[in-house]
Structures are given as structure tokens and as C-alpha cells.
Design a protein around this nucleic acid. Structure first.
Lengths: 258, 258
DNA sequence: TAGTGGTCTAGACCACTTC
DNA sequence: AAGTGGTCTAGACCACTAA
């Protein structure tokens, strides 16, 4: 049952550095001794010292750079996601540069996300979410959002073809139809977003996800599923996102229901 | 930068079983070959075969039982947490067995959580949340909630002493003051819960958390922070929870703000 | 080119489970 | 007692980084 019943030298070495990091004796960015040095200092083989390093890495406490060394992990600034980011005031008036999810609206932001718009047949999940027949054509917009040059999350949105056909949402150029933009566009078509449901689940990333988000081993992701509806209950957007866990926090205020 | 630039035999073996599991050729509970068999079949040393197994384990795909074998991981039923679980109808009428968070109200549930109530001085975080001076006495109620005998999450609630002094909330017996109970009790004191804010963040567990929740290596946790307030904005409960990620999903519906 | 992280073989021992 | 997972030493080689 217990995963590590034996506490050998590798665990002990990892313990030492774990507490050193948590106690602040080692700061983000600091370099750890080389595995060869560790082996000498602790009187173990390089193999064992390497294992100690890999334990810390799997815990997300350090990152290792091939051929360079092991470093205490830098913690990124955390962005808090709440209902406010969907506020009407943020997309209703502004029609230009409506392409980022946070408050920044600089031109440079244009390079901060890639975009890929296609028409695809709806699979079972998308069909059920949008309330359309299986296989019906939908518009899929896949984005990878970056911050400071590093990917923070991916979002893939699905729209009914009839809702977005011929609109800038189908424009492939990045920045032409971010979420704020898409809300404004849907509103102009008489499909004003009224309510949202977000489902959140944390898990370890798949191999692909770890690669595209460049996640260090041991970093979880949060899977977000979002339904956006009009006042009469019609789902106008179904979206799935994968967020690097260390970069986000979610915050939801609500009233006690009856 | 890249974590595994070299794809040796260990990675290849792990790949084989990862796809076998995802393709459904191996089912939850199925036993993997022993490391010795793997070593023979793939023509590698036991050490390397063992490493392949440890890769899969760190990904949360399998669990290993010491001296027994490696098994495809059983997935637990997922519980969805939404605002509904705080509904008035669930705590306002019933005053007895108000101690579990889900709909079950059997006597056996009593054993499903441990409880530990104490008076402690408020640290900076708790003081700020409850709006009281640093060091003021607060009531801390720490619970570990189990399901089918396994711990699923821990919740630690903090109340202002004046709010709960002498009430059943200070009763240490399990089941006397679960959250539903505490809401009813606070209501009777004229402190009816009106709104809630929940903050969520996913991360890897600490060593302690992994132990108390008996988390397999590679399973993340979700840290939940909750503020419960009355209609006039007074915080009557501040709570921190740690949830095993694989057992929960959160669901929040909300209106598009102006 | 030298230093560093990552992986592998070969052989051994220990800890735990199952019978 | 036999089987199984986990760890370790010893030595080697490969992949990548930095100067």
C-alpha cells in the first residue's frame, strides 16, 4: 500500500533539498549541486544522486536543464479567473483588439496566441453540448495562449455553423476573434451571451499536453469545460480548455441557493 | 529544456502499456507483468523494467502494490461539486444528521469523517479572512472526509469565537456539526449564510497531504478556499480544503456580469 | 572540449505479500 | 518459502550545454 516504504539515500538527499527549498535557504533560480558533486558529498553513486534529483523534479520543486544543471523552480505570477472576465463592459463596447482574456490590450499581444479555425463534423460530445445532430458541421477554433513567450493554456471553442458563418469568427488571423470578440460578434447576430457554466477538473497532463504547454514533469493541468448560452437557453459556444495548473486560480462567487 | 530527450527502452516499454491502457486492452484492476517478466520479454535489466513501471505509476495510470504486482488503476466515481450543495433546503429544515456534504444520510456515514475542534489564535491569513485582529481566538474545525473507507478530502473551517461559542459546532463528536449543521446553527444565531466565494487551485500534494489522502504518486490535489458571508457582508466561515483531484469535479453556473 | 543530466547493464540486497 | 516491487553500487555510454 505505502508507496515508499524504504527510505534510502536517494530519499534522504531529496528530503534535504526539499526542506532547504521550503525553508527559503534555496531560492527560485538557484542552482543545485551537480549529480556528481551530490554523489561525492553523500557518498553514493551518481545513479542514486540522479534519482534524488528526479524525485524533486517529479514533485515540481526543481527543473533540470539538460547538460546545464538543476535549478529551483521559478514560480510564475498567478492569474485569477472569475466571472468578471466575461463582463459585458469588456466586449460590448470595444470591437477592436478584442482578442485577449486579460486586461492588456497592447499590439504585442497579437503574437501571444496562435489560432486555428476549421469546419469539422461534430463528434458525440460537441453535438450533445450544442444540441445538434451527430456529424453536423461545426466551426472549431483552437487557440494556444502564451504569456511572456510561454504557453499557459489552450482553448478549443465550438460554434454552430449557422451562428458564425461568414463572421470574423471564421477569420483565421490571430486577434480577429478572441473570446471577447466572439461574444460581440454573436451579440450582433442576435445571440447575446446570457449565462455561462464552467466545469473544472484537475489531472495530470497527457504526453501531448505536457509538450505543447512545456510543462515540467509533475505539473498538473486543469481541464475547463465551458457552456455559453443565450437567455433562452440556447448553447452558442462550447469550449474545452487545458490550463497549466501553476499559472491559474479560479474564483467563483455565488449566492446560497434555495 | 525537454525533459526526456532520449527515448530508451524504459520509455518504450511505458509507451506500450500506456497505449494498451488507453486503448482498453488493459482494464482497471488488470495486473501487469512482473518486472522480471518485463525484463525478459523486452531484453532489458530488471532495473530498466522497473523504471518503466515507475514512469507509468508517476503518470497515475497504474498503482503498484509492494510484493504483489502492478495493476491498472481503478478510477473512482467522480463527485460533482456545485453551488447546489449549499442550498438552504438541505440544511434549513433538517437539524439532525446534518453532517455529510452529499445526499446520503445514513447512520454509517458517521464513521465517514473524523473531526477535530479546537480553539486557536488566528494567524495572519485567518484573521484577514474573518476580519478580526491577529491572534484573536477562533474556533478551528478540521475534518477528514472519507468515502468507501478512503479519504477523499480534508476541510478545515474557521469561525469567530463569538459566533459559535457554546453551540454544537464546538461539539467534538463527529456528525454533530457538519457544514449543513453549521449553516443551520449559524442561522439560529441570526447569522444566515447568504453568499459564498470559492477559490480553486490545483497543485501537487505535499508529502503530508499525499499520506493522509493516500494519494498514489502523480495524483494532484485541488486546494479550495471558501468564504461564507451573511447578507451584510460579514464573513462567518473561512475554510480551506484539500481534495484528491481524481475524485471531484467542480461546476459553476453564473450570469454574464455587466 | 569539458562539464552536466539521463540512461543503461550487471549483480546484489532488502521489504513486503502470498501461500 | 517463493515471488514481487524497490533500491543500491559500479561502471559505462549517450545527449545536450556552454565556453
Amino acid at each position: 500500500m505505502s508507496p515508499e516504504p524504504q527510505t534510502g539515500p536517494a530519499s534522504r538527499i531529496a528530503d534535504d533539498f526539499r526542506t532547504a527549498i521550503k525553508d527559503g535557504r534555496l531560492h527560485p533560480g538557484d542552482k543545485l549541486p551537480t549529480v556528481r558533486d551530490l554523489a561525492d558529498q553523500y557518498g553514493v553513486t551518481r545513479n542514486t544522486a540522479s534519482k534524488a534529483v528526479s524525485i524533486l523534479r517529479s514533485e515540481g520543486l526543481i527543473v533540470t536543464r539538460y547538460g546545464s544543471g538543476a535549478y529551483v523552480r521559478q514560480s510564475h505570477p498567478i492569474r485569477t479567473l472569475g466571472p468578471d472576465r466575461y463582463a459585458r463592459s469588456k466586449w460590448q463596447t470595444t470591437t477592436v483588439d478584442a482578442h485577449t482574456e486579460d486586461g492588456r490590450e497592447t499590439i504585442q499581444q497579437d503574437g501571444d496566441q496562435t489560432q486555428d479555425v476549421r469546419r469539422v463534423p461534430a463528434d458525440e460530445e460537441v453535438a450533445a453540448a450544442l444540441g445538434i445532430p451527430l456529424g453536423a458541421t461545426v466551426v472549431e477554433r483552437a487557440r494556444t495562449v502564451r504569456r511572456d513567450g510561454e504557453a499557459t493554456h489552450t482553448v478549443t471553442s465550438y460554434y454552430r455553423l449557422e451562428d458564425v458563418e461568414g463572421t470574423p469568427i471564421e477569420d483565421d488571423r490571430p486577434g480577429m476573434a478572441g473570446r471577447r470578440g466572439s461574444f460581440a460578434i454573436l451579440s450582433e447576430r442576435g445571440l447575446e451571451p446570457h449565462d455561462v457554466r464552467e466545469n473544472l477538473k484537475a489531472r495530470m497532463p497527457s504526453v501531448d499536453e505536457a509538450e505543447t504547454l512545456k510543462l515540467p514533469p509533475g505539473e498538473p493541468v486543469v481541464e475547463m469545460i465551458r457552456w455559453t448560452r443565450t437567455a433562452d437557453g440556447r448553447v452558442i459556444e462550447y469550449a474545452k480548455g487545458v490550463h497549466a495548473a501553476s499559472r491559474f486560480e479560479w474564483s467563483f462567487p455565488f449566492l446560497i441557493p434555495d
